[in-house]
Computed example of a mutant assay.
Amino acid sequence: MKKKAGVILLMAVLAAVMLICHSAGQRLLEGVKKTSETSGRAGRMSDQLVVLDPGHGGMDCGKQGVNGIEEKEVNLKISLQIKEILKKENIDVVLTREDDDRLADTQRADLEERVSIMNTLKPDLAVSIHQNSYSDAGVKGAQVFYYEGSEAGEEAAGAVQEKLNQIDPKKAREVKANSTYYILKNADVPVIIAECGFLSNPEEAELLAEEEYQRTVAEAVASGVVLWLNGK
């Protein structure tokens, strides 16, 4: 009888210990999550953070090139390469998406979620990667947008535009202010939109479909980001 009572007591003690450990673990996880949401820097390797935002995804393919390529795919491939380059520069990077899924069921909710990530993590800079399109197939060249009135945004856009223009000076364009694009308007951090080329231009669409050219674009964007971060 005493032996049975001892076993029951031991089981009760073990159950109590497990409950305490589970509770402590939950509190620890909640604490880590809260810290991360508050600062966006918990557990990171440097004091510089960049959020990369590959535009579109999932059922939202974005623009479609004259050669059939989809913007969402080009955006992601370039963003992943930018991430790789920046991490080698000891810069922390978070992507809003790393696969072919958008972040919400509707386009509006998707954009809201992207902005929420930026505003929660509070990066030094957010860079949204896109491809352009226009009714005139002859128009080409990368162009960087920033929120009108944002000095930091304008400077960051200028640094990235400078590097993109060096890919082919004959296609050089100038940065452009905007006050209506949702991400530019609603992000609380410096943010730029890099339209890396025109999928409506046959020559540029073919280039953007090539892995080597995607790497060239990624290196230019990353180089501009590093230039701006170092000059802050």
Rank of each mutant, 00 (worst) to 15 (best):
I167Y: 01
D47Y: 08
R41Y: 15
V17I: 15
V93E: 03
L49K: 00
Y181Q: 09
A15R: 02
L19H: 04
E212M: 06
S150N: 12
A156M: 04
E162N: 02
A109R: 09
L111H: 02
A109Y: 07
E203S: 11
L19E: 11
A137P: 11
G158H: 08
E206L: 13
R108L: 13
K3R: 12
V17P: 00
D99K: 06
P190F: 10
G31S: 11
V17G: 01
D124Y: 12
V93D: 05
Q166I: 07
Q64P: 00
A222L: 03
A104M: 07
S116K: 14
E148L: 15
K176S: 15
D99M: 07
M18K: 01
Y147G: 03
T180F: 12
L80M: 12
C21S: 08
N67T: 10
M59L: 05
M11K: 05
I192R: 04
N230G: 07
M118C: 11
A5M: 14
A152L: 12
A152G: 02
E155K: 15
E211T: 06
S128F: 00
D110C: 03
E219L: 05
R215C: 00
G149C: 10
E70V: 05
Q107N: 04
E212Q: 07
L52K: 03
D136P: 00
R215V: 03
P190C: 11
N201I: 00
L14R: 06
K176Y: 14
E212D: 13
I167L: 15
L164T: 06
D92N: 12
Y146R: 09
A222N: 00
A157N: 01
K77F: 10
L52D: 04
K4N: 11
V160T: 13
M45G: 07
L86E: 07
D188H: 12
V74N: 07
A159Y: 12
I183E: 05
E210M: 12
N230P: 01
D99Q: 10
Q48C: 02
L199A: 02
G197S: 06
E204V: 04
S223M: 10
I82G: 01
G197A: 03
K140N: 05
E155L: 11
V217D: 03
S79A: 13
Q131V: 08
T96Q: 14
L164Q: 04
T106S: 15
E203I: 08
V221A: 03
M1R: 14
K140S: 13
P54I: 07
G149L: 06
K2N: 08
D124G: 06
N90A: 15
L10P: 02
L229Y: 10
M1Y: 12
S39E: 11
G158W: 10
K4S: 10
Y146W: 14
A159V: 12
A5Y: 07
L199E: 01
V7W: 13
D188E: 14
T120C: 06
F198E: 05
T106N: 05
L229D: 01
H22C: 13
D92L: 03
L207W: 14
I8F: 09
K34S: 09
D99F: 06
K170F: 08
A222F: 05
I20Y: 09
R173N: 13
E113N: 01
N178W: 12
K185R: 15
P190I: 13
G141S: 04
M18R: 05
Q81W: 08
T38A: 14
K72D: 09
V94C: 05
Q214W: 14
